[in-house]
Design a protein around this nucleic acid. Structure first.
Length: 383
RNA sequence: UGGGGUGUAGCCAAGUGGUAAGGCAACAGACUUUGACUCUGUCAUUCCCUGGUUCAAGUCCAGGUACCCCAG
């Protein structure tokens, strides 16, 4: 098979390329560049802005070294405009609405398994491969997305929004490998990046002071932090959009009581609502509204399991259908920290059924905003 | 300027003569291809100031000082 491997400069994609080569495929590599700090006005909190060589060039050099070591051709392709238009604008819009989006899921949907796949086809490669820890298997002659064998690294959550048809054209060579085996292979090959630290942080943007990064695009706007249980102002925030539900760090609320957790926000009034202790009922919900659901299978279950965040355990859930893409996901046992903007991803055992965006969460039949409104329907008192 | 009370880290707070608990926050690290959560670690040679008693003072005594409350 002719396969184009997305080579990032990290260990995983390097080993993926090597494995495909060993299997006798006709392999070429491509390095994607999707973020340009100066072009994208990414100034605040950018630790590498002044560096002579930007981290992405270092990654490219690493990828080049890998390709050379394996004797494979390396293409280079920019998706900077596509990333901005399709991933980043959506990301910012969601933040402006007070939600917490998952940019990496958008990146996989629009860039890696759309634009990049198209690019590969045009280049004459009908298949693409990446270093994702996920598995594709034919079940009843239909390609399905499954969890990786390495359950600790499984990244199927991030792939829930990719086009179903794309599954036919993707190869995940790391599907059955543990991370430590991948590293072992890399070091046996004497790859220069064998010990390179796993990358974390937003896809293509990297590990950053997140608040400072957002300040480039969402201006700081100070406001009050209010204790939802008594409507008292107990602190100040630098911008309600910078916080996410369930967040504890960065509130700077000292003194008696605590710890304090963000439980909701009022974007219009610029108020951040917090409650004491993680055990408080404000973070719990029994159901949520999920929209834009991307189905990866033909199955439409009424019961299955779900993850509401990456690396969260699978929770048993029941599904009620508003329509094909709009679901009410119910979990009467209650789950903490289900957050609008994040993705609800459904599974049946190992099979990833698909995912959609959490639009609202409900507790005792009330939406989060209704609950907050009910609790704050008295004037806020200065403390 | 009569009475009472209180001053311990950024905040809250133990400690009542024997060599500064704990919590919150902050910071650092781990974990993590979202954002969180979580875990680990760091964080007062010093207790409002000055002097005194004592082998030993955050703790006792004296004076000063700041703030709070009550009465004027």
């Amino acid at each position: 098979m002719k396969i184009l491997v997305g080579l990032s400069g990290g260990v995983d994609s390097a080993v993926a390329a090597y494995l495909l080569q060993q299997q006798g495929h006709e392999v070429a590599c491509a390095f994607m560049r999707n973020w340009d700090a100066s072009l994208n006005n990414d100034i605040l909190g950018n630790p590498t802005l002044q560096n002579a060589i930007c981290p992405q060039e270092e990654d490219y050099n690493d990828a080049k070294a890998v390709a050379d070591r394996l004797g494979l051709p390396l293409y280079r392709i920019d998706f900077i405009k596509e990333y901005w238009d399709e991933v980043f604008t959506t990301f910012l819009t969601e933040y402006q609405l007070g939600r917490t989006p998952n940019p990496d899921i958008l990146c996989n949907k629009y860039i890696k398994f759309s634009s990049f796949m198209k690019y590969a086809e045009e280049l004459g490669y009908p298949y693409i491969a990446t270093g994702h820890y996920a598995k594709i298997a034919r079940i009843n002659n239909i390609c399905q997305l499954l969890k990786a064998d390495d359950r600790n690294k499984d990244q199927s959550y991030f792939l829930c929004q990719i086009p179903k048809e794309a599954l036919e054209k993707i190869v995940f060579p790391l599907a059955e490998l543990d991370k430590h085996e991948v590293r072992r292979i890399a070091s046996e090959l004497n790859l220069s990046i064998a010990a390179k630290k796993d990358s974390t942080g937003i896809c293509f943007i990297g590990e950053r002071n997140f608040r400072e990064f957002l300040m480039n695009y969402l201006p700081a706007k100070e406001g009050f932090i209010v204790n939802i249980d008594n409507n008292k102002i107990i602190g100040r925030h630098t911008g309600v959009l910078y916080y996410t539900i369930g967040q504890r760090k960065g509130l700077s609320i000292g003194g008696p009581g605590g710890p304090w957790f963000v439980i909701g926000k009022d974007v219009k009034q610029n108020i951040l609502y917090v409650a004491e202790k993680e055990t408080n009922s404000w973070l719990k919900s029994e159901s949520c509204l999920v929209t834009g659901f991307n189905w990866l299978t033909a199955e439409r279950p009424s019961e299955c399991t779900a993850k509401f965040r990456y690396r969260q355990q699978d929770h048993p859930v029941q599904i009620r259908y508003q329509d094909e893409q709009t679901l009410i996901v119910e979990y009467p046992q209650q789950i903490s920290g289900v957050t609008p903007g994040q993705e609800a991803v459904l599974y049946r055992q190992d099979i990833c059924l698909g995912g959609g965006v959490i639009m609202d969460v409900y507790h005792q039949r009330l939406s989060l905003n209704e609950r907050i409104k009910g609790a704050t329907n008295v004037s806020i008192q200065p403390n």
